[in-house]
Amino acid sequence: MKHISIALAMAGLSVLSASVQGEMQGDAKRGAQAAALCIACHQADGGGKHIEGGESWPRLAGLNATYIANQLHDFKSGARSNASMEPFASMLNEQQIADVAAYYSQLPPTPGQGGEEVDEVLLQRGETIALHGDWSAYLVSCKSCHGPDNQGAGTVFPGIAGQHAGYIESQLQAWKGRTRNNDPQDLMGSVARRMSDEDVRAVAAWLANQPPAAKQQELSQ
């Protein structure tokens, strides 16, 4: 397995083109070293941090590797703009991106923060949106794409259960305000723009309170 990943990595290195995005094999061990850059915000355990009223740092531990790699590519190319991330993503080469993505995807996920002190009514609204949607506003449920437990589906739809409320809220707001638009086919943007600010707060808080993974083993596959 290691041989293959190194061979692929070398092949990848020689072709540094957009076509290899997300396909390059990462090495989690090497990724752990490159991740030294990331610890200040994303923390040593990859758990990130909810920061009330400030910029929250997402949990990366246990997210899909291809999804992480794609986001890093997008920060680097400017397809996704974020002042804090841009300089760090720019320091990573293609191989390092694949490596850190592999590293974080294999860390055990940690619980989400920021949904602890939210009132019942708002949480109830959040649950409705996440699990059933609100078709009166043509809001499709989160789970119809992010998976039955909102723990992610494939390489495109990231796990959002157990993500920090502040981060989910900021991203939904970014889609609403069209400052984030690196989602394929505007799939997330078209839903987010139909959400009220209260919907955004509600669903962010509810999701933060959900388990990020059913079983630890499931994630390390």
Binding site: C145, G154, V156
Partner: peptide
Amino acid sequence: NCAICHGADGSGLQRDGKTI
């Protein structure tokens, strides 16, 4: 427009035997 969810081969996406 569709393959991102339903797969280019039309088989959709399943996880642990569950339909996504």
